[in-house]
Design a protein around this nucleic acid. Structure first.
Length: 211
DNA sequence: ACATTAAGTGATT
DNA sequence: AATCACTTAATGT
């Protein structure tokens, strides 16, 4: 069962011996939508290999307002884990299940070990680290130039992608919170996008037509 | 029917 | 783009 999911999601990446080891030490965890899996300041002692669902990663400012950084999808892992292994070991981010999700938790002690012994593991870690960095740079880019419409567009695209559903179930208020802006601004921009025929708005849901 | 919450809009900074 | 103030619409009790 766990092995099947390992094979389908990571089988093409890792050699059989590594898959064996992963299966042996990994702990299967299921979380429901909206569940907080990791908070800022919390100790990290395992890294997730995602089988199913999507996780959203946020930071927080001094006032306690949130800002969405990126999503983790199936086949991804959390880049935060790596930097935490080397440094203080405390999380600098908050992770909330975007959808019902399922993953395998790998004790961080294994990371070093496997890094040295498996080439595939090494590239996996390096690749995902690189991927997260690119994602972050993209986020910073839109953030720095304060293009709210671009950020919103990206947000909707990402959200539809990670949930594999062109119907997004959320409120304007929640979007505003993720993007660290006001609800009014989100409503206005969404309304504009609806007029352009890109989306269709209903209460508590947004239908993505063309992004 | 009433209260609550989500969303739309004009005006102002 | 943010905030205020107000309206309208949808939903729950």
């Amino acid at each position: 069962m766990v092995r099947d999911k390992l094979e389908t999601n990571y089988g093409y990446l890792f050699e059989p011996e590594l898959l064996d080891e992963i299966e042996k030490v990994g702990q299967s965890v299921k979380v429901r939508q909206g569940e907080m899996m990791m908070d800022i300041g919390q100790q990290i002692n395992a890294m997730p290999l995602l089988f199913e669902g999507a996780i959203k990663i946020l930071t927080e400012d001094e006032e306690g307002d949130e800002l969405l950084l990126y999503f983790i999808e199936v086949g991804d892992t959390c880049a935060m884990t790596f930097s935490c292994c080397m440094g203080a070991g405390k999380s600098e981010i908050r992770a909330i299940a975007e959808t019902d999700s399922e993953m395998l938790m790998i004790p961080i002690e294994k990371m070093d070990d496997w890094m040295a012994r498996y080439r595939s593991w090494r590239s996996f870690i390096l690749d995902s680290y690189h991927e997260r960095l690119s994602e972050l740079l993209e986020t910073i880019d839109t953030l720095a130039f304060m293009n709210m419409d671009d950020r919103l567009l990206k947000y909707l695209r990402d959200k539809a992608m990670v949930t594999h559903d062109d119907m997004i179930y959320t409120t304007h208020r929640d979007i505003a919170q993720d993007l660290h802006t006001s609800r009014v601004v989100v409503s206005r921009l969404l309304k504009g996008m609806e007029r352009e025929g890109k989306i269709k708005l209903q209460r508590n849901q947004i239908k993505v037509l063309d992004l």
